[in-house]
Deep mutational scan, measured.
Amino acid sequence: VAMCDYCKLQKIIKETVRFSGVDKPFCSEVCKFLSA
């Protein structure tokens, strides 16, 4: 469980994407796409 980078809620992380050398955790595909 970690904080989703988009919705800022403590959730089970399903996706982690690396932006500019920094790992960004996301709880769902939706949050990942909305943050892009």
Rank of each mutant, 00 (worst) to 15 (best):
K8S: 04
E15H: 13
K11E: 05
E29S: 06
Q10V: 12
A2M: 13
D23T: 07
V30N: 15
M3R: 09
Q10G: 07
L9T: 14
K8T: 01
C27P: 05
E15R: 07
F19W: 13
K14R: 04
A2S: 06
V30A: 12
E15W: 08
F26K: 04
V17S: 05
G21Y: 09
F26T: 03
V1D: 06
F19E: 13
K8A: 01
K32L: 03
P25T: 05
K14G: 07
V30E: 14
C31H: 00
D23S: 07
F26M: 12
C27M: 04
K8I: 04
S20T: 08
V30H: 10
A36D: 15
C4I: 13
A2I: 01
K32R: 06
M3Y: 13
P25W: 09
V30Q: 15
V30T: 12
D23Q: 01
D23V: 07
K32W: 01
C7P: 01
C27E: 06
K32M: 14
A36M: 15
C4F: 02
L34E: 11
D23I: 02
R18G: 07
D5V: 03
V22W: 01
D5N: 05
I13V: 13
V17L: 10
S20A: 11
K8V: 00
E15L: 01
K32Q: 08
T16S: 04
C27W: 01
V17Y: 03
Y6S: 03
K14Q: 09
V22P: 06
L9I: 10
I13W: 02
V17M: 14
F19K: 10
L9A: 12
K8Q: 12
D5G: 10
V1L: 01
P25F: 07
T16E: 06
D23W: 05
K24Q: 05
V30W: 13
S28K: 02
S28L: 07
L34Y: 07
M3C: 05
R18A: 07
S35Y: 09
L9K: 13
I12L: 11
C31I: 01
P25D: 02
K11L: 05
T16W: 02
Q10K: 14
D5C: 08
V17A: 09
K8E: 05
C4R: 05
F26P: 08
S28C: 04
I13E: 12
K32G: 04
V1W: 04
S35A: 08
G21P: 07
C27T: 00
V22F: 04
S20P: 05
Y6L: 04
F26H: 12
S28P: 03
Y6V: 02
D23C: 06
Y6A: 03
V1H: 01
K32E: 05
L34V: 03
V17D: 06
P25Q: 13
S35E: 02
M3F: 09
K11W: 05
F19L: 13
L9R: 14
K11R: 06
V30Y: 15
V30S: 12
V22A: 06
F19A: 12
T16R: 10
E29W: 02
I12Q: 14
F19I: 15
F26Y: 14
K8M: 02
F33R: 14
E15P: 10
S35P: 00
V17R: 04
M3S: 09
Y6G: 07
V30M: 15
V30F: 04
Y6H: 14
C4D: 03
I12P: 14
P25L: 05
F26V: 06
V1Q: 14
I12W: 09
F33L: 13
S35N: 04
R18V: 09
V30L: 10
C4T: 05
K14S: 05
F26S: 01
L9G: 14
S20K: 09
K24P: 02
Q10W: 04
V30G: 10
Y6M: 02
K11F: 11
K24T: 07
F33G: 14
D23E: 11
V22S: 08
I12H: 01
A36S: 08
I13R: 09
S35R: 05
F33Q: 11
G21F: 07
S20E: 13
Y6E: 00
C31R: 00
C4P: 06
G21V: 01
F19P: 06
V1I: 15
L9Q: 14
D5E: 08
S35Q: 06
Y6C: 14
F26Q: 05
K11S: 04
E29C: 00
K24H: 09
D23A: 07
T16C: 11
C31P: 00
A36R: 08
Q10C: 03
L9D: 13
V17W: 05
G21I: 07
K8D: 01
V17G: 11
V22D: 14
C4L: 01
I12E: 15
V1E: 09
I13M: 12
E29A: 07
K32P: 01
A36G: 10
F33T: 15
L34C: 12
E15F: 09
F33N: 14
F33E: 14
Q10S: 08
L9P: 03
R18M: 14
C7A: 02
A36N: 06
Y6K: 04
P25V: 13
R18Q: 10
Q10M: 12
V17H: 06
C27R: 03
R18D: 13
V22Q: 10
K14T: 09
K14V: 09
D5P: 06
V22E: 11
C27K: 02
V22T: 10
P25M: 15
K24D: 05
M3K: 06
C27G: 01
R18S: 13
D5A: 10
K11A: 08
V30D: 12
L9W: 01
F26G: 07
A2R: 04
T16Q: 07
A2P: 02
T16V: 10
F26C: 12
C31M: 08
K24Y: 12
Q10P: 11
S20G: 13
Y6W: 06
S35T: 00
D23P: 05
L9H: 14
A2T: 02
K8R: 07
C4Y: 07
Y6Q: 11
I13H: 12
C27F: 00
L34A: 14
K8C: 01
K14L: 05
S28T: 03
T16H: 14
S20Q: 13
T16K: 11
C27A: 00
A2L: 00
S28D: 04
F26L: 06
V1G: 07
E15S: 05
T16D: 15
V1R: 07
D23G: 04
K8W: 01
M3G: 03
V17E: 09
T16A: 03
I12M: 15
C4S: 01
D5W: 14
S28M: 04
F26A: 09
I13Q: 07
E15Q: 06
E29V: 05
